[in-house]
Design a protein around this nucleic acid. Structure first.
Lengths: 334, 334
DNA sequence: TTGTAAGCGTTATCAG
DNA sequence: CTGATAACGCTTACAA
C-alpha cells in the first residue's frame, strides 16, 4: 500500500502538501497538483480508509445483524439495506446470529467498539423468547440502532415493522367474506415470535368477529412439517381454506392439498406469507401476503442514515410497511 | 466512547500502564491490574478497533462480493463463509454486485483501500460475459483473493468450484442408463456463465456418447419463463426427462409437466439444480443436483484464512466441491 | 513496576 | 502557495 508519506518523499514535498493537492485544495498551486495527481495515479494510490476512519471517527460502515440469510425474507431485506446504503456510500458488515442469543451478543459487542456507525438488527428467536436485550442498552446514544421485523418492545430505538396483525386480519376476512370460507386453518412455524403472535391475533380476531372457530396448526421448529400437514389435512376434511404465516408452510400445504385430490382454489383456498420466489415455485401460483422485504430494508437503512446526520435530533420513530395481499391462483377470482 | 487516555487520567497512571494492564502484561503489578480492570469494566471500556487496526495494519475483516443474496445458492455460501470466519474471529463486509460489472468494481476498489484483509468473490454475470477483470489484478499481493463458483480463469488466485461438468454428465447418464430416457431436455437460464457452459458440456457429452440428440431450452434472462416452458413441453410431447441447471427452472418444469397431465416420474423424470428449500417447496419432492453451498462457503473462507497466515507462502489452489445427485421423488426408484 | 515517546496514515490548524 | 506539527486511540520499545 502506497502512502502519502511515500508520495511526498518521491516528489520532494511535504505530506500535507500531497494531502491537500489530492483533495484539490485551493491552497495548492495547479502545477503541484498536477505533479501529485500524476504520481498518485501512476502508483495507484488510495487513501487508507482505516486511517481516515480513525481521524474522522466515523467509519461509513453499518453493522447488520440478522438471524439468517437463508430465509428469503431476510435475504430480501438485506438486499434493500445494501441498496440504500450503497447509494449513500456506506458499506455494511453482516453478522448472522443463527437465532442464537449468545452469537447475537458477541457480534454486537464486537462491532460496538468503533467498527460501525450504526446498527440494523432483527433479533434472534432466542433473544425474543428469553426477552433478553440488555446488550442493546449499553450502546452509547452516539451509535444509533434500527430494529426491523423482529423488534423488542422494551428497547428504545427506531423500528420498521410489518403490519402483521392487520395483514392477516384482512386476509382472513377476505376468505370469510369474499369466498365464504368457514373452516380456515392457520399454519405457523413462528408462533413464539412477536410477529407470529401478532399474525395469529389478526387471524383469531377476524374469525371471532365472524363467529367462526379458529383452527391453528402450530408446527414450531419441526424439522419436517410436511407429513404433519398432510395428516392434519387428511383428518380434517372440512378445511376449506388455509393461511400460512411463514414463508414455507403455505407452499407445503398447497402441495399436500393437491396430493389429497383437492381442487385449488375450488375446494381449498391457500394464502401464503410471501417472498419473491414463492410465486415462481408454486403451482398454481400461490396467493400471498407479500411482506415487501426489499422496502423494509430500504426504509430501515434510510431511517438509520437519518439518525446519522449531523443534525441528529431526529426522534425515534416506528414505521409500518404495509404488506400487500397479492391474489394469484390459489384463491378464487372474485 | 471511553478511551485509554480517560482511564489513565482517572487512575492517575499513564496510558501505557493501562494498556498493558488490560492485556494482562507481566510488567504490571497485580494491584494496578485490578484497579484498572475494575474501572474499565465499570465504564464499559472497549478498545477502539479502528485504532487497533491502524496500528496492526490488519482489520480482521474479509470483503465478500456476491452477485445476489436472493439467489438461495449464494445465501447458503455466504452462510458458510460467515460460519468459518466467525469461528476464527473474522467479520465480513458484504457487497452485492447485482450482476453489474461497474458495481463490482466500485465495491472492490472501495474495500481495497485497507478496509479488509482479503476477498471472497463470485463475479457478476456482466464481468464474466465481458471477461473484464483488470480490477482484480491491481490488488497487491498482500491482499489475497479467493473466487468461488463464478470464477475467472485468467485471474491468478485460489478458487473453489463446483464439479459442474461432471455432475450434469453423471445426472444425464443416470437418466439414460438407469431410466432409459431418450428425450432429455436441458433447461437453462445461466448459459452465458462459465458454470452454465460447463454444465451444458456435461449434458451434451453424455447425450452424444449415447447417440442421443441434445435438446436445450435456453431461457436467458427471461423475466417470466413459465409460459415458455409450458409451451415447449406442450409442443414437444416426446420429452421424457428434464434436467435443469439453475435453481428455479426445474421446479417450474415440474409444475408445468403436472399441469400437462404428466405423471412424475413415470412419464417424465425431473432433476433440478439444488438448494435446500427446493426439496420442501416442490411436490413430489424434487430430485436435485445438490450444490453444497454451505460447504463451498466454508472452504472458501478456510482457503482465504490460510493465505492470511503469517507463514503465507501457501500456493494458489483450486478445489472442487463435488455436488451430490440427490434422488428424491421426481426420478424413478431403481 | 511504571512512564515516555514514537509510530500506524490521515487531516487540519497554523506559521512561514 | 507550502510545510511543520498535532491529533485520532492504540501498542510497544525503551528509559527511568
Amino acid at each position: 500500500m502506497v502512502t502519502l508519506k511515500e508520495l511526498a518523499k518521491l516528489l520532494n514535498v511535504s505530506v500535507s502538501t500531497v494531502s491537500k493537492a489530492l483533495s484539490d485544495s485551493s491552497e495548492i498551486g495547479e502545477a503541484t497538483k498536477r505533479r501529485v495527481n500524476e504520481l498518485a495515479n501512476q502508483l495507484n494510490y488510495k487513501p487508507n480508509r482505516i486511517a481516515q476512519q480513525l481521524k474522522s471517527s466515523q467509519t461509513k460502515v453499518i453493522g447488520v445483524i440478522v438471524p439468517s440469510l437463508v430465509i428469503p425474507f431476510f435475504a430480501e431485506v438485506v438486499h434493500g439495506i445494501e441498496k440504500t446504503l450503497g447509494d449513500n456510500n456506506y458499506d455494511m458488515t453482516i453478522c448472522i446470529s443463527n437465532e442464537s442469543l449468545e452469537k447475537e451478543q458477541r457480534s454486537f459487542d464486537l462491532l460496538s467498539s468503533g467498527s460501525v456507525d450504526g446498527f440494523i438488527i432483527a433479533v434472534a428467536r432466542e433473544t425474543q423468547v428469553k426477552n433478553d436485550f440488555n446488550h442493546f442498552n449499553d450502546l452509547g446514544k452516539s451509535t444509533p440502532l434500527v430494529m426491523f421485523d423482529r423488534v423488542v418492545a422494551d428497547v428504545d430505538c427506531s423500528k420498521v415493522v410489518v403490519d402483521d396483525y392487520q395483514s392477516v386480519y384482512d386476509a382472513t376476512k377476505y376468505l370469510i367474506e369474499k369466498e365464504n370460507r368457514e373452516h380456515i386453518l392457520l399454519l405457523s412455524n413462528v408462533e413464539e415470535l412477536s410477529v407470529g403472535k401478532h399474525r395469529i391475533r389478526g387471524y383469531t380476531q377476524a374469525m371471532e368477529e365472524a363467529r367462526l372457530t379458529p383452527e391453528i396448526l402450530k408446527l414450531g421448529r419441526e424439522k419436517n412439517p410436511r407429513p404433519v400437514i398432510y395428516n392434519y389435512l387428511n383428518e380434517h376434511t372440512k378445511v376449506d381454506a388455509i393461511i400460512s404465516i411463514d414463508h414455507i408452510t403455505g407452499i407445503m400445504a398447497l402441495n399436500k392439498s393437491k396430493m389429497l385430490g383437492k381442487n385449488i382454489p375450488k375446494d381449498i383456498s391457500v394464502i401464503g406469507f410471501g417472498y419473491e420466489d414463492a410465486k415462481y415455485v408454486s403451482s398454481p401460483k400461490i396467493s400471498v401476503i407479500n411482506q415487501k422485504g426489499f422496502e423494509i430494508g430500504q426504509n430501515s437503512a434510510k431511517m438509520l442514515l437519518n439518525h446519522l446526520k449531523p443534525s441528529n435530533d431526529v426522534p425515534y420513530e416506528t414505521i409500518v410497511v404495509k404488506s400487500e395481499l397479492e391474489l394469484n391462483d390459489t384463491t378464487k377470482k372474485v
